[in-house]
Design a protein around this nucleic acid. Structure first.
Lengths: 229, 229
DNA sequence: ATAATAGTGTCTATAAGACAATATAAG
DNA sequence: CTTATATTGTCTTATAGACACTATTAT
């Protein structure tokens, strides 16, 4: 019995924080369907070179956006007849979190950053996929350390708190926040490194503890409800 | 450019509680590969009759186990070269929760219930898939009302508490449990219905409030971190 | 009456948040 | 010194758990 023709692709929702708002990186499509539209970086699964779908996501991110993300997690699979004009399709969606400054728009002029709110005009069901990724990130931000991946390598606690506040859309208690970070036990102060330059007491710079850096291989299928901790 | 030959299937992890332990329903395979082995109910996605992968899961559950589950959620997608001897495959996994008594083993002699702990000998990566489903259920049980789907239509609070305790593997505080159930506001007492017959004060029977029954259509892609509330 | 478990009241412990005091930089 | 923000201490409030008391049934 022949296998019916099903289109197998991978979509990547690449998220970063810019101007205190979550942004998604979209790519102007250069071929049909929806040539010219702004869409998620995507691609066919290639059984030759991809060991699994996550591998394909890593490759697509590298090829289409020149980015290797320290955090990449399976979001879910979107499938059905209606979502792709070419026919019945199945797309495994991943989401990646990166600090804004590594998004090298110069090297990829087709790449654009859009606020995740008020999206419209995305082809396929990409808007729905983005919304799902955003919900997932916001939901996880309430109980996990996920947002650290939106910061750079070094950051102060007030900066990190700002990231949480931007994601959650509400202020967070400073004392509780610091207690929580302390309990999570995933950050370490960088000895001697302080954020200085402004007219106030300098803030201690922190970084992720070594064992939590480059989690890539550990966050396989999104079956990891608490990314760290 | 031709689409590479990728095997697209759906697996369903059908779970119930028996003797205070989580059990998974496995099916003896009647064809290759792994004919004769106990495996998850699975099947090819059929673009002709399935609107999407979840639709396929519902169909497979109906055809292979004669069950329509009130709770079915996408677990994740498992893919790669090594998991199926026939070649590079992609399998969208779902999990379903049902009360033990609706598992009609008589009508499906090939169906078997196994404790989820100490599994071994499952073909493909089915053991891994089952473990992922079990982790998800246990994790969600700590903060959601998911376990109600393992009960029948009517149940007492002590019974429901027992389900939570079986899942979590530890006793839960009675007062806190009842407070939580009260807050969740998803149960209603069945007027006049009491569990009687034993030598003690009879317990009030409860049921899910109407709007939470038959959630099937709402739990699409597992993107619903809190199944209820 | 007794035993058994359901259901509830209340006290205690733990966690979260509010508020305020102190620290340290630039100008 | 003044201003601004980091960092820390402490009090208050909210939430979770422990314990015990009352309720209701079968025997």
């Amino acid at each position: 019995m022949a296998q019916p023709p099903i289109i197998c692709t991978v979509d990547v929702v690449l998220l970063c924080l810019k101007d205190a708002a979550l942004h998604v990186a979209l790519l102007r499509r250069d071929h049909a369907p929806f040539a010219g539209a702004l869409a998620l970086p995507d691609g066919y699964v290639d059984p030759e070179q991809d060991r699994d779908a996550q591998d394909a996501a890593v490759r697509i991110l590298r090829e289409k956006a020149a980015i290797v993300s320290p955090y990449l997690e399976q979001l879910g699979t979107f499938s059905g007849k209606g979502r792709d004009p070419r026919g019945w399709s199945i797309s495994v969606a991943y989401y990646a979190l990166v600090p804004a400054h590594i998004m090298d728009l110069a090297r990829h002029p087709a790449l654009q950053l859009l606020t995740v709110d008020h999206l419209k005009g995305q082809p396929f069901d990409h808007r729905e996929i983005i919304q799902a990724a955003v919900e997932r990130v916001r939901s996880k931000s309430t109980y996990s350390s996920l947002p650290v991946y939106l910061c750079g390598e070094r950051f102060t606690l007030p900066q990190l708190q700002g990231v949480y506040e931007a994601l959650l859309g509400e202020p967070v208690n400073k004392v509780s926040f610091r207690r929580k970070m302390d309990e999570l036990d995933i950050l370490e102060p960088i000895p001697g490194a302080m954020e200085t330059g402004r007219a106030n007491r300098p803030a201690q710079l922190y970084r992720l503890k070594k064992k939590y850096r480059n989690q890539l291989s550990l966050t396989g299928r999104g079956l990891n409800p608490d990314p760290l901790k």
